[in-house]
């Protein structure tokens, strides 16, 4: 079914989502991909603060192309999520509620999603121009030196995603190809 969702997420909203639901997200989300995850993970290991509070928030696995003058952001589609699997359970245990990416996740991510009542969404891979139109504000908030891999705070309006893994552990991809 089609659902509108506000971000940051509420516990109840996440519990209601089911694999296969079409969801339109409005609110604040944060970008982080490979290099930013590595740095956040190292920060946690060293007992340092993360650059933003992950609690109830959504991380979008995305590194945009540069924006042209007058544009909010460049092309902005999802990257493959599984490269973040190594770092994801720790973030979920700290209260991260949602992730947007594309592709499969491993069992430790699935366990952490269920354990923490979280959700994993997919956006359409390779639709970066279309998805950029749903981003109304973009600000680099950390790791500026990483270029496209910096952490950005995005304000999104009706950003279209599909629930792949819900808080009960249902997995849309598994239903598809077994």
């Amino acid at each position: 079914m089609d659902r509108q969702l506000k971000s940051p997420l509420s516990e109840k909203d996440v519990m209601d989502l089911r694999a296969g639901d079409y969801v339109y997200i409005t609110g604040i989300i944060y970008t982080a991909r490979d290099a930013a995850h590595k740095r956040m993970f190292e920060a946690l290991e060293n007992g340092e603060e993360l650059p933003f509070d992950v609690k109830n928030n959504i991380i979008y696995y995305m590194g945009p192309s540069p924006e042209r003058e007058g544009k909010v952001i460049g092309s902005a589609g999802p990257t493959t999520s599984s490269r973040m699997d190594k770092y994801t359970p720790s973030l979920l245990d700290l209260g991260l509620k949602g992730m947007i990416g594309k592709g499969k996740r491993n069992d430790s991510v699935k366990d952490a999603v269920v354990r923490n009542g979280a959700v994993y969404f997919a956006a359409v891979g390779g639709a970066g121009a279309l998805l950029s139109k749903k981003i109304i504000k973009s600000t680099v908030i950390a790791y500026d030196d990483l270029g496209t891999e910096a952490i950005r705070e995005l304000e999104v309006k009706e950003f279209p995603v599909i629930v792949v893994m819900d808080s009960l552990g249902n997995n849309l991809y598994e239903n598809v190809v077994g």
Binding site: G74, S75, A127, S132
Partner: peptide, 11 residues
């Protein structure tokens, strides 16, 4: 959109 607005097809 990519062609009309010169936004790369994929990031």
């Amino acid at each position: 959109i990519a062609g009309e607005e010169m936004i790369p097809i994929c990031q």
